[in-house]
Design a protein around this nucleic acid. Structure first.
Ligand code: FES
Ligand code: FES
Lengths: 153, 153
DNA sequence: GCTAATTGGACCGGAACAGTACTGTTTCCT
DNA sequence: AGGAAACAGTACTGTTCCGGTCCAATTAGC
């Protein structure tokens, strides 16, 4: 349904919360503070650690800390860390599409895909925290639409 | 992975092909012309028919025809017809998110979701056919990005 | 050196999707 | 009228992927 996994949603919440208290934080603490189930938030942080979004400190008195400030972490990077690369269709980036030769849509999906990716890259976690997403998206509505699409609902 | 289902990909290909020959076309013909397996393309067209994207003519010499010109069919409408509504996270539109009260991201996802939806609504199947997607997306890149996000890869 | 705390990685169950098959209904052509 | 062609709807099956759980590796502190 063009939806991203629930893990990604959790990741954003956890990261924003991590950015508010700028110190090493453990999974249980983050779980209590966000309301996300403890095992789940732990898993999310584990993945984020492997992707370099957060740095981890093992052992007692360990925990997680942001690798970059919130302003430098884009939504896209979080999505790609959890859900994998942003690829609307299988045929972007030379995917193994069955109807490659006959479809006639050569590479147009790549454009759409890149547009989505750019939009998501422009939004940072700081925007999510400060509720300033709308500012960044000001130019996102299609600029010129001569013959308005009808079947949009 | 923020990917839309393969059926949607097929639907776009089939619809563009349908728009090229502006006459009633059968599933087998469309299958041969697009390279999509016959049962699959049939299933896709059936769904599109129920959603009013195409009109169907039953019986011998029957087939499918576009209900609207290509210029009036947006990518978003096709996606919604096949994959259901565009909802990035479960918490858009009053979803049953577990951490609603504690997450602190009140409604920001709705903004992001709406942006994606608007972008996809601005692209029509005619743009896909004519390879003019890039034109429509010219204003999609975020306008101002003072402190560029670093972790974008 | 031992214990406790915490991350790291592997495992498993279940839901959603893609694809297939079958039956029924409608329409055209002979 | 009869048969063939094509859509409509439903049901089924195999597979993939997400979500969650469990145990092993690692480090700080006493
Ligand atoms: S290459 Fe995938 S549909 Fe054209
Ligand atoms: S409402 Fe879903 S994460 Fe905040």
């Amino acid at each position: 349904m063009l939806k991203l996994s629930k893990l990604t949603d959790y990741a954003v919440v956890a990261l924003v919360r991590l950015g508010q208290k700028n110190e090493v934080t453990t999974s249980p603490v983050l779980s209590r503070s966000t309301g996300i189930p403890e095992p789940t938030v732990a898993k999310v942080l584990k993945i984020l650690a492997t992707q370099g979004i957060v740095t981890s400190q093992r052992g007692a008195r360990g925990g997680y800390r942001l690798a970059h400030p919130l302003e430098e972490i884009s939504i896209a990077s979080v999505i790609q860390a959890i859900d994998g690369p942003i690829s609307l269709t299988t045929c972007v980036d030379g995917g193994d599409c069955d109807a490659r030769s006959t479809c006639g849509l050569g590479g147009q999906w790549d454009m759409v895909n890149a547009a989505i990716r750019n939009a998501l890259s422009a939004i940072t976690l700081a925007d999510m925290k400060n509720h300033t997403v709308i500012d960044r998206l000001g130019g996102l509505q299609a600029p010129s639409m001569p013959s308005g699409p009808a079947a949009t609902a």
